[in-house]
Design a binder for these strands. Structure first.
Lengths: 220, 220
DNA sequence: TGGAAATATGAACACTGTTCAAATTTTACC
DNA sequence: GGTAAAATTTGAACAGTGTTCATATTTCCA
């Protein structure tokens, strides 16, 4: 099952060369900012490398000095948002939150993801472009974040119901994560009322399922 | 929010020209068969129109006589599978099945989709290529099938719980459809044990959620 | 200041999907 | 069966892409 033709030589690093001079770092920022704007406005495919270079006031060659290929620019933008999203999720899991009633925990967790899209409206377009464009190999880094969310959730479940095998907790966490991600993503495509409604349904779905495995309250 | 650059002129029809002669229809079949094989083996992007034409024993021009562009070939392949899938779903909704206990209905419905992927293993690769490649506009026909599934489900729910508003039934059906699609898709990525396990979790998730709205048994 | 190392440039390259005038095949009519 | 019109097939040519790399420029440091 050969993946493609591309040689897996040195595209592994996000950046081809670490920018050592201050001016270079500004350049990278400039390229990223222009690329994000163009990707959102006219789409990933229509935003040619020539256009990005021209708009950023650099040459095409300069882009390839920092990014191994065009996809890497989009990936870098997506990772910037994913880090923010993951951090918010982690911040939710304070010792205090671990003892919350299940219903309230589910409420807060889903609100965290929903609020993220409100606070970073640009992330929706970038994620959409990513889903449309990137060939599902080489997402490593991207679903690394998803795996970390699943892992954190699994630990939370195991603390709630120690009799549940950790592997079972991971499976439940995976189901929950995939489902919430999909439904919240769907909610972004409609008007505010639709979105609010779908968030409520997502909470109900999640809670109903988790109640099959977890007690309402945390063990003392 | 301009969608792209493409002119929405006459790409609307699946085929540029309806094949009128018998030989032409064989040609279309030949192109589709070769394209499916190449898409699965080396991927959509690597399968150039030149390669498809050569392998099918026709010229590039002939391809464009029947398909407005390369995407249309992939879409035609996907629609062939989607029709099969949708037909199976419809076949499930006999008058007899409408009175089944909720648990058994959920069981059968999810098995229908799961069984489809077993019976048509090639569909997975084609759907994957479609998700990776097609820009989320112009899928009309594709999620037409999804909408019909949602609609059929909504009618079923309304028959089960007439007090539920039809709009509410549609929303529930949408949530269920999106969730099952996502989880079963995920299940295809693992080994048979993982897949079986995920199908079971999908059933539990679906049933738990539906029980919040629907009675266990159909009304008399 | 001078020259070596780092950085920036954009024409050239390889390859893509797509078109369309010309060649070929089929059809229809006597 | 012969022939001209219509339908169909062809593939070189076109337009546009991402990417490279020899060359020019800038920065750095003795």
């Amino acid at each position: 099952m050969p993946d493609s033709k591309s040689s897996r030589s040195s595209k592994l690093n996000k950046m081809r060369r670490q920018p050592q001079q201050a001016r270079s770092q500004e350049r990278v920022q400039q390229i990223l900012d222009v690329a994000e704007q163009l990707f959102v406005e006219i789409g990933y495919e229509s935003a040619t490398t020539r256009a990005i270079a021209a708009q950023a006031g650099v040459s095409v060659g300069s882009i390839y000095q920092f990014f191994p290929d065009k996809e890497a620019i989009l990936k870098a933008l997506a990772i910037r948002y994913l880090q923010k999203q993951y951090q918010r999720f982690l911040d939710l899991h304070t010792p205090a939150a671990m003892t919350l009633p299940l219903r309230q925990y589910v409420d807060q967790m889903i609100d965290v993801f929903d609020q993220f899209y409100t606070d970073y409206p640009g992330s929706r377009a970038i994620f959409a472009q990513l889903l449309d464009t990137i060939t599902w190999s080489k997402i490593e880094k991207i679903d690394d974040f998803e795996y970390q969310v699943i892992d954190e959730l699994a630990r939370f479940f195991h603390a709630r119901a120690p009799s549940l095998a950790i592997s079972k907790c991971e499976r439940i966490a995976m189901v929950i994560t995939k489902t919430i991600t999909e439904l919240l993503w769907l909610s972004l495509g409609g008007d505010p009322e639709f979105r609010q409604d779908l968030v409520a349904e997502t909470k109900l779905l999640t809670l109903s399922y988790l109640q099959q495995y977890l007690p309402e309250s945390a063990p003392e």
